[in-house]
Amino acid sequence: MLLDTPICDFGWQAPDFKLKNANGDVFSMSENLGKKGLLIMFICNHCPYVKAIATRLAEDTEQLMAEGINVLAVMSNDYQHVEADSPQNMLRFAEQYGFKFPYLVDEDQQVGKQYGAVCTPDFFGFNHLGELQYRGRLDDARLHNDPNREPELLNAMQLIAAIGKGPKQQTASMGCSIKWR
Rank of each mutant, 00 (worst) to 15 (best):
F17Q: 15
N77L: 00
D60L: 07
M157E: 08
V50D: 02
A117V: 07
Q80P: 03
N148W: 04
L3V: 14
F17N: 15
S173V: 10
Q133H: 12
N23I: 08
L64M: 15
A52T: 03
D122L: 04
Q158M: 09
E67S: 15
N70M: 07
C8E: 07
R181A: 01
S28Y: 10
G136Q: 12
D106N: 02
L39Q: 03
P121K: 12
N45K: 00
Y134W: 07
P102E: 04
K179R: 07
V71Q: 08
Q110D: 14
M174Q: 11
D9I: 07
G116N: 14
M90W: 00
N148E: 04
N127P: 11
H128Q: 14
N32L: 08
A52D: 06
M29Y: 14
E59L: 08
R149A: 13
E152F: 07
R149Y: 13
A54H: 02
R92Y: 03
S76D: 04
D108P: 10
H81A: 07
K179A: 02
A52N: 04
Y103N: 09
V118T: 11
W180Y: 05
L57M: 06
V26I: 13
C8T: 15
E31D: 15
E107T: 13
Y103V: 06
F124E: 11
L143H: 05
F42C: 11
I53K: 06
G136M: 12
N89I: 00
L33M: 10
L129M: 14
W180V: 01
H81T: 08
L2Y: 08
D146R: 05
D78S: 01
G116M: 13
Q170P: 03
E150Q: 10
Q110K: 13
A58T: 05
M65D: 03
N32F: 06
F42R: 06
L3C: 06
S28I: 07
F10C: 12
L159F: 06
R181N: 00
C44D: 00
A141K: 05
Y49V: 02
R137C: 09
T171Y: 01
G136Y: 07
V50I: 02
E95S: 04
I160G: 10
Q169T: 06
F101V: 03
K18F: 09
H81V: 08
G116E: 15
F27L: 10
M41Y: 09
A117Y: 12
F126A: 09
N155A: 15
K100R: 04
I160T: 10
Q96D: 06
F126S: 10
M41P: 04
D140L: 11
Q13L: 12
E95D: 06
V74F: 03
N45W: 00
A172K: 13
A58V: 03
M90F: 01
P151F: 06
E150F: 09
L159Q: 15
H128R: 14
G166I: 09
K168E: 14
K35Q: 15
G116V: 11
S76H: 01
Y79V: 01
S28P: 12
P151S: 10
D106Q: 03
Y97P: 02
